[in-house]
Amino acid sequence: MAAAKQLPGPQDLSDDEREALEALLFSLADDEFVIAERYTEWQVRAPTIESDISVANIAQDELGHARLYYDLLEDFGYEEPDLIWERDASEWRHSTLCELPFDEGDWADYVVRSFLFDEAEYIRLQALEGSSYPRLADRIEKILAEETYHREHARSWLERLCEDDESRARMQDAVDRLMPHALTLFAPTDEDIEARIDDLGIRTENLLTMREEWLDEVVPRLESVGLHVEEAQLPEQYDVHHADFDLPDELGRDQSHTDAWFDLYDEFTKSYRELGRHEAAKIMKDPDDE
C-alpha cells in the first residue's frame, strides 16, 4: 500500500478522519481491556504459583496497552468514565473472543485463546507501526515489545499441553469452541469505516489480508502439535475465498455481544456504581509525559 500522507493532530482532523480513528481505537482498546479482564480471573487460580505470576503479568501488559489506546481517545474530549465506566455495555467494540468466560480449571481455553489472540495482535500491531496517525504510530513500538513475551508464553504452553492425549483433547475442545470467535478479531466495525481506515493509511494492511496472514500462522502451528482446525483449508497465499469459516452470531466489532459480556460488564462496574462515582482515579503520569 502506498504511504498515505500523515494525518494532523487530534484537533485538526476532519469528521470522517476522526470517525475512522475512533472506530479503530475503540476496537483496539476494548479488545485489550476485556481480554485482560478475563485473564485476571486466573490470578490466584492458575495451575502453579509461577504460572499465576506470569498470567498476571500478561494481563497487566494488556491493560496497560488498553490504557494507551483509551488515552488517545481522550484527545477527542472523552474522559475515562465516558470510555469505560459509564459507557453503555452495548456500545463496546471488542471481539467476542475477548469476552467469553473461562470454565473453572479450563487452562486449555486460556492457552488457546491467548495463542489465537496474541498471534493476531502481533500482525495487527505490525500494520499500525507505520500508521499515518503519528500519535498512534508512536505508541506501537512499546506495545509490540511486550507482545513478544505473550506469543512465546502462549506457544510454549500450546506445545507442552499437546504432548499427552488427555490434555490435547482439552486443547482440541478449546480450539473448536474458540476458533469462530477468534475470527471476529478481523470482523469489520462497519464496512465503510474499515475502508476509510485503510484509505487514510491509519492501518497499513486491511482486515482480510491480516486474517489470511493470521490463518497462515496459526493453522499450521496448531496442526503441528496434533490439533485439528475444522474447515481449515489453508488458503493459497492471501486468497480469502478459500477460508470458508462460519462466524458466530455475535461479532463484537459491530456491537453485538454474548450474554456473558453483559454479566462481566456489571461485575467490573460494580464498585464504580456502588460508590456513586463520576470520575476515575488516575495514579500514573499521563502517557505523553512519561
Binding site: G64, L68, E146, M284, K285
Partner: peptide, 18 residues
C-alpha cells in the same frame, strides 16, 4: 532478548507513584 519489567509504564508497581 527482553526488556525486564516491560516497556510500557508500570509505575503502578512502585511505592513512589503514590
Amino acid at each position: 532478548d527482553v526488556a525486564f519489567g516491560g516497556t510500557t509504564d508500570k509505575s503502578y508497581r512502585w511505592a513512589m507513584t503514590y
